[in-house]
């Protein structure tokens, strides 16, 4: 089971959280002009990375708030969690190595 650090509440057990899939998928600014292919990319196509993923979590049985996390999908180790609206943070080689361990 994962131990997840809510940026607002601190570390809590995974059962308190709901995963919200890949983060930073921006809603199309002008939906009327989108092609079918662009809709498919937005709605369905995913990076599904083996390695670092930026993903959304919601502290569903806690403060109820959404936040983002960086995690290595090969180990399930988190690099960090960060507040909604912040850009994807840069990761140092040391942080990446630690998460891959």
């Amino acid at each position: 089971m994962l131990l997840i650090k809510c940026p607002y509440c601190g570390e809590r057990a995974e059962v308190e959280f709901a995963n919200g899939g890949e983060a930073h998928i921006a809603r199309p600014a002008d939906p009327m002009t989108l092609s079918d292919e662009e809709w498919a990319q937005y709605l369905y196509m995913r990076d599904n990375p083996k390695g670092l993923i930026a993903e959304r979590w919601r502290h569903a049985h806690g403060c109820g708030r959404f936040f983002n996390a960086l995690r290595d999908t090969r180990t399930d180790r988190f690099v960090m969690t960060y507040e909604m609206g912040q850009p994807r943070p840069d990761v140092t080689p040391e942080q990446a190595a630690e998460a891959a361990r």
């Binding site: 089971m1 994962l2 995974e14 059962v15 709901a18 995963n19 899939g21 890949e22 599904n48 990375p49 083996k50 993923i53 993903e55 995690r71 999908t73 090969r74 180990t75 399930d76």
Partner: peptide, 13 residues
Amino acid sequence: DSYVSYTQRGGLH
């Protein structure tokens, strides 16, 4: 399990 992972593990809950 709800999240993307390649670990072949998952949580016991």
